[in-house]
Design a protein around this nucleic acid. Structure first.
Lengths: 235, 235
DNA sequence: TGACAATGACTGACCAGTCAGTCATATAAC
DNA sequence: GTTATATGACTGACTGGTCAGTCATTGTCA
């Protein structure tokens, strides 16, 4: 197999000619082609670049991704990228940050006062599958695993913002579960990773082996919760 | 005829202490560049290239690794690489295969007739930590996760040779454990991944987050086994 | 000596990053 | 309201460097 050819599969916006630019469609609700203000259009561009870059980085990894492809996919000239990002490397870092941050907000499971701990953990698991495993964010997780060692800044950030916070939250839940007698295995509080592990496996499986053997992530997580909390009553 | 080679008056074999055992005894009496037969020397070269390439690929990933670096590290000219491998891509694939194959042999845990299932699984876990998590093979696993999507051939191979076999073996153990009453959670037989997940997490953690928060993999796996088999008797 | 192995300078493709120039928009002046 | 000027977002051809892969030459073994 020779070098992977440029990705033309994407709806690469035809380089819109300058004369028409003023009428370029914008995503405004009513006006299909309202000429947004400079700031607005600039923000739109930046967003388009981020989306495109994400696709390319996920598909090819950092080193093999060409800025020309990102530019084409974003419907933008290559130079424009450098108006928004310092260079390829910091673009990658900033990119991951940008996409991860909103994900962090959803991490801390709100432990409803009334419910059981199992309900809370189940909620986290459901959220994880819906929001991460079955979306592009799952690929981001894989991307971090893949490029982390070469981007210590990203690995650090990810540990600080996601891993440590997520595990801390999970540990709190586990301790509550132990206190309430829902969880028998006390050692779990020291290794919340065990509770999370199958979810991560699901993400990796998804992008590597799913075509060989589809994995029912929901069912797997259910079994895992049964393992931790004991068989669920409703069978 | 002075050697034009810059700094390598003898085929520099820098960091290659791995399999010198056989030659170690005679290393003092014989010239380092022992007059081995052509075939032997060729095989040695090939092995050196594989070792070097592995180091580089692990450190940099596929795309960012330079063949010049591999050649230098292997104490070999770049052209020599092409006497042994078709191109960079097939070198990478063949490489992973070469390193994985001996690993596969160790996968099928020998279920000792006398012991408990827990003993058997513990043996697998111990083997995993010794042979994979704490060696360079762990990095290979990460490498596969990282580059898998861009090297379907490798992902396929890995699934066929390692994942499916490993999971099948684990499933057999689980079913035995269920039959013997050692394992309560029957659903585990459908998702052997759950049993293996923490081990994989340990590998990933190792290369990404260990400097932030060292993870005691042995202890974590023990807790996980407690979770599956119930508290161990000896406490 | 003949056959084969090894070398490393070389080539050509490829690509990150640059920058002089363009033009739509914003602002000021009339 | 209309025209003139200023701004800066955007462009894409270009540069300089890098690197996979080649091959004529050199070295080595049988």
């Amino acid at each position: 197999m020779s070098k992977t050819r440029p990705s033309t599969e994407a709806p690469a916006k035809p380089a819109r000619s300058r004369r028409v630019a003023g009428r370029a469609a914008s995503a405004k609700t009513l006006e299909p082609r309202a000429p947004a203000s400079r700031a607005e259009r600039s923000a739109e561009r930046r967003q388009a670049i981020i989306e495109a870059a994400l696709d390319e980085f996920i598909a090819r990894g950092f080193a093999a991704t060409r800025l020309d492809d990102i530019a084409r996919r974003a419907g933008v000239a290559k130079g424009t990228i450098y108006l928004h990002f310092k260079d390829k490397e910091s673009m990658f870092e900033e990119l991951v940050r940008t996409v991860i941050v909103p994900l962090v907000g959803r991490i801390h499971a709100p432990p409803q006062p009334g419910g059981t701990v199992r309900d809370a953990v189940e909620g986290v698991a459901r959220m994880f599958i819906q929001e991460i495993a079955s979306t592009r964010r799952g690929d981001i997780v894989r991307l971090i695993v893949a490029e982390g060692p070469r981007f210590p800044a990203i690995a650090d950030f990810y540990y600080r913002e996601v891993v440590s916070k997520g595990l801390a939250g999970m540990r709190a839940l586990i301790e509550l579960g132990i206190a309430r007698g829902e969880i028998k295995e006390k050692g779990l509080a020291r290794f919340p990773q065990i509770v999370v592990a199958p979810a991560l496996i699901a993400v990796i499986w998804q992008s590597l082996f799913n075509k060989h053997a589809p994995l029912d992530a929901v069912e797997m997580l259910r079994v895992h919760l049964d393992l931790i909390f004991g068989e669920r009553r409703t069978a």
